[in-house]
């Protein structure tokens, strides 16, 4: 990976360097993105073509989750299914 900060994807945001996190089951790219007045953590899944930007408080809520929360998310292992949307 290059040492330069990654190019922000949408013109209005500055962004940090991507960190890639992978295991044999999933692959995501994570980086900080800077809004005009603050920052978020962006997680994208190139495979699913999905992304989310979490604010500090959303991230903070993750610290009190148990593995069950994530098991719950994984009830639909490919992400939302049509009828659930």
């Amino acid at each position: 990976m290059s040492a330069d900060p990654a190019e922000p994807e949408s013109g209005d945001l500055a962004a940090g360097e991507y960190v890639e996190i992978a295991n044999e089951f999933a692959f995501v790219k994570v980086r900080t993105v800077h809004t005009r007045n603050g920052m978020r953590l962006e997680i994208t899944s190139p495979r699913l073509g999905r992304g989310i930007r979490l604010c500090p408080m959303e991230l903070e809520t993750l610290t009190w989750q148990t593995p069950e929360t994530f098991s719950g998310f994984l009830q639909t292992p490919h992400g939302p299914e049509p009828e659930a949307e």
Binding site: F25, A26, P67, F70, S71, L74, Q75, T76, P77, H78
Partner: peptide, 22 residues
Amino acid sequence: SHFRCPYHAWTYKNTGELVGLP
């Protein structure tokens, strides 16, 4: 934390429990 089967994506916790299937 979870294992997702490469074939049809049945997904197991790392305790072994099945938690999700498409």
